[in-house]
Computed example of a mutant assay.
Amino acid sequence: MVFSRALILAALPLLAVATAIQGRADALITSCCSTVGSSSDPAIASQLGLLGIVLDGVLVGLDCTPITIVVGTGTTTCSGTTVTCTDNSDGGLVQIGCVPITL
Results as ranks from 00 to 15, higher is better:
3 F>M: 11
4 S>H: 08
13 P>W: 05
14 L>D: 12
15 L>Q: 12
17 V>I: 15
17 V>L: 14
19 T>L: 07
19 T>P: 07
21 I>N: 07
21 I>S: 09
24 R>M: 09
25 A>Y: 08
27 A>R: 14
36 V>D: 00
36 V>C: 00
36 V>R: 00
40 S>W: 12
41 D>C: 01
41 D>S: 13
42 P>I: 01
43 A>N: 15
44 I>T: 00
45 A>V: 03
46 S>K: 09
47 Q>V: 04
49 G>T: 04
51 L>I: 13
52 G>N: 02
54 V>S: 12
55 L>C: 04
56 D>V: 15
58 V>A: 05
60 V>M: 02
60 V>H: 00
61 G>E: 00
63 D>T: 07
66 P>D: 06
68 T>W: 07
69 I>D: 11
69 I>E: 11
71 V>D: 15
74 G>I: 03
75 T>F: 12
76 T>R: 05
77 T>S: 10
78 C>R: 01
79 S>K: 09
79 S>W: 04
80 G>Y: 02
81 T>D: 06
81 T>M: 07
85 C>N: 04
85 C>S: 05
88 N>K: 05
92 G>W: 02
93 L>N: 12
93 L>G: 14
94 V>R: 00
94 V>G: 00
96 I>N: 03
96 I>D: 08
97 G>K: 04
101 I>P: 03
102 T>M: 06
103 L>F: 11
103 L>C: 09
